[in-house]
Computed example of a mutant assay.
Amino acid sequence: METIPLGEMNHNPAKITAKVRQGVTVVLTEHGREVIVMTPAAQSTSAVDRLMAAGKIQRTAHPGAMPELLDDLAALPSLSALLISERDEERNR
């Protein structure tokens, strides 16, 4: 934690916010009294949140709704076969 006079924030806001981004909690004081505490934002460690932030997935428009079932699952390739095939291709590269 670092204590900085409020006037310093007016003169060097980029420097102080950079410290907060690096994980330092900054306490701004005015006439020796704490007036503002700046802390880094909590970072989500959820895999879903990281994928959403990267734009790789998005939340469903209708949470809780069941998707329509496929009529003929037999027509689809086996998931196991697809995984084995991909693994074999990767090993042969």
Rank of each mutant, 00 (worst) to 15 (best):
M1Y: 06
M1Q: 04
T3E: 12
T3W: 07
I4F: 00
I4D: 00
L6P: 01
E8N: 08
E8D: 13
E8F: 01
M9T: 04
N10V: 15
N10E: 15
N10Y: 13
H11W: 04
H11E: 15
N12P: 11
N12D: 14
P13G: 12
P13C: 14
A14T: 14
A14I: 01
A14K: 15
K15S: 14
T17V: 14
A18P: 00
A18Y: 02
K19N: 05
V20Y: 08
R21L: 12
G23A: 05
V24T: 10
V24Q: 07
T25Q: 11
T25P: 04
V26L: 02
V26N: 02
V26Y: 10
V27M: 08
L28V: 00
T29L: 02
T29G: 04
E30H: 12
E30I: 00
R33C: 03
R33V: 00
E34F: 05
E34M: 04
V35Y: 13
I36T: 08
M38A: 14
P40M: 13
P40G: 08
P40D: 11
A41M: 13
A42V: 12
A42Q: 14
A42M: 13
A42E: 15
Q43I: 14
S44H: 09
T45P: 04
S46C: 09
S46N: 08
A47V: 13
A47N: 12
A47M: 11
A47Y: 10
M52W: 05
M52R: 15
M52A: 13
A53E: 13
A54T: 01
K56W: 15
I57F: 13
I57D: 03
I57E: 01
Q58C: 09
T60S: 15
T60V: 13
A61K: 13
A61Y: 10
A61S: 12
P63A: 12
G64N: 13
A65T: 09
P67M: 04
E68T: 07
L69D: 03
D71R: 07
D72C: 09
A74I: 05
A75Q: 13
L76G: 03
L76T: 00
P77L: 07
S78C: 08
S78L: 09
S78K: 06
S78N: 08
L79S: 02
L79D: 05
A81F: 11
A81L: 08
L82Q: 11
L83R: 09
L83Q: 08
I84K: 10
I84D: 10
S85M: 06
S85V: 00
S85H: 09
S85W: 02
S85K: 07
R87Q: 09
R87E: 04
R87Y: 08
E89V: 02
E89W: 03
E89Y: 01
E89K: 09
E90A: 08
R91Q: 09
N92T: 12
N92F: 01
N92C: 03
N92I: 06
R93G: 07
